[in-house]
Nucleic acid binder design. Structure first.
Lengths: 354, 354
DNA sequence: TTGTACGCGTTATCAG
DNA sequence: CTGATAACGCGTACAA
């Protein structure tokens, strides 16, 4: 790897310089760059190869993209990059992008529709070849316009019925049911659902909905212990927990958290209140963050196939890029996996309490 | 926001369509797009504005970039996106990018020099206007070549003396010293340093180095309890912990972790071994992950100014983009903040043990 | 197997 | 204030 093989002229190296250096035309070099080796003599190929190496030439993607009508860029618009769920999906997307020689343009909206709109605007300007989006659901017209340009769009984690796009997410009904059934099997009877405001976000809605349905089937009173909390307001989670626990005292209570962000606050709250897990209350959470094993004797987790979600979403984008013919939009729901840990081991505490 | 204001022709809208619709030349439209309003009559401005809105026109960044010689893209090459430290820095970079109307091209190398090289190659092809990199340090020639194209490069978190680039990182000496002095003040006497392999990574090296220096000054024996662990090998951390704790029994031991990834495993290991914090051992960690407050009575943390690192790095890139004249490369070290929590409260346990 | 010539969509230069 | 025209770097008919 020579340090600075090119001359000291500060002019960027173009395909023309390579052509001259190799003693061929730029067309020939272009063919080499596109991998059309069958159109080149071995000798020519060699000459071009060394010329490129000697000049340290990099094809200009902007020029390339302008001409070919493809940027090589995929937009990834996420609601909250601080959420480990998002990061894991992103890893999947990125790894899959490598295989297609694509790059990821990352946009974090913070769940703000206006931010989202601005980002979509910029991504359109960059002529992204595909978009994977965790949308607020407030910019459907923008998204439809993008799709009209034949840009493949995949909704991730959040469904929007109004949009005719591929959607990749976890099977929220199966996942939620798995967590709740586990709690019931462990002997917990009064189960609360802690969630952030639903706000039309499909994953949150589906989870609460399933919670209600399962609880209706499996408990007598049909109690509806849904607690909607704003995790950024200090004390809100504690208040909710206290309310629930006083109502549910003696009824074998458990808490189910709709995601890891909520779970973090719930564990904090339980610590603050001096409530023990699983002795005083059972605990299950969606997502399986790296710290889940460290607290409450290990939190029983409903683990989403995050990485696979990312890979799948990107594959979908890629597939549509290759095959522009009309494929009907597809809903892909991946199964979750229950990771049982100490936070739901009610049996183990029976001897002490009974 | 009309749904599809353009005609049904699938041709992309260009500046020419806008020009025609507004009854002006494309030059004039281009002026509007660049915000050179002082060169436009109010009437013309209005006409262009409505034409753009009516046609739902998006300027093509590839064409724009090709002509102007700037892509509007910043490369962000990170060693490990799964590390919350990285994510927080990224957030800072991205937020700062918004202010400059730039976008982030994200590349996760997994600490693999070859991956890094491939990514740098792709970024060069996209003609990124700047690069923020958490480098393995194995691709210096590539980076120098990029810099020769006058692309601003900022090293983040990891210094490379061989490279004449701006560098933004935490003040590792101050930070490490703060953590250790806190432990000493709390009465801990035998302090171990748990780190991932140094591997020429400056931040890791500076931290261990400072550890050695501080320990030399403040302890008699000059014991050198550095434990290098591979966090991906199960049991390695446990073994190291057991070794240390048996050697240090009765000497008021404490463990200091070089980052949150190590801390996670250390907490796991201590749980496995049945060692209590802070009763049996004190604990301090670099980084302040969201779960730090949940375990060991709260882990005392050496909090890095992650978000600020990202903002600062991007500002630096932007500054160099505006002012191409030679500025000498600068080293910017931001201070860390010690967040004292329960994991180092040795005083509180005195009454019980003494 | 190789080269010529044109256009992708935009901005810069220059002339009005 | 406005417009014609030439690039920017590359891919691709088409011709040789």
């Amino acid at each position: 790897m020579a340090d600075r093989p090119r001359g000291d002229s500060n002019k960027p190296i173009t395909i023309l310089h390579v052509a001259r250096a190799a003693g061929v035309s730029k067309t020939t070099v272009s063919r080499y760059l596109s991998g059309q080796y069958h159109l080149l003599s071995e000798e020519t190929r060699q000459k071009i190869e060394s010329a490129i190496a000697a000049l340290d030439y990099r094809p200009n993607q902007m020029a390339r993209g302008l001409k070919r009508g493809r940027s090589g860029l995929v937009g990834m618009v996420v609601a909250d990059i601080a959420n480990p769920f998002t990061v894991d999906v992103l890893r999947g997307v990125e790894d899959e992008c490598k295989r297609c020689s694509m790059n990821v343009l990352l946009c974090n909206t913070g769940n703000d529709p206006e931010q989202e709109r601005e980002y979509i605007f910029m991504l359109q300007a960059h002529r992204i070849d595909g978009l994977i989006i965790n949308t607020t659901g407030q910019n459907n017209a923008f998204l439809k316009a993008l799709a009209h340009d034949r840009t493949p769009i995949v909704l991730m984690d959040r469904k929007v019925p109004a949009l005719p796009f591929d959607t990749v997410c976890v099977d929220n009904r199966q996942a939620t049911r798995a967590g709740l059934m586990h709690l019931l099997e462990q002997g917990y009877r009064r189960i609360a659902w802690f969630t952030e405001p639903v706000d039309g976000i499909s994953s949150r809605a589906e989870r609460v909905g399933t919670y209600r349905r399962v609880m209706e089937q499996h408990t007598k009173g049909g109690t509806d212990d849904v607690f909607v909390v704003n995790v950024r307001v200090p004390g809100e989670v504690e208040t909710a927990l206290a309310t629930f626990l006083s109502k549910a005292a003696g009824e074998a209570p458990a808490v189910c958290c709709a995601n890891a962000v909520v779970a973090l606050r719930v564990v904090e709250g339980l610590n603050t209140l001096g409530v023990r897990v699983p002795e005083d209350v059972g605990l299950v959470s969606f997502d399986n963050p790296d710290w889940a094993g460290l607290v409450c004797g290990g939190i029983t987790a409903i683990e989403q196939p995050t990485y696979a979600l990312g890979v799948t979403a990107m594959r979908r984008v890629w597939a549509r890029m290759q095959a522009p013919q009309e494929m009907p939009p597809e809903l892909i729901e991946l199964p979750a996996r229950l990771v049982a840990r100490g936070s739901t081991v009610r049996a183990a505490i029976r001897p002490e309490s009974g």
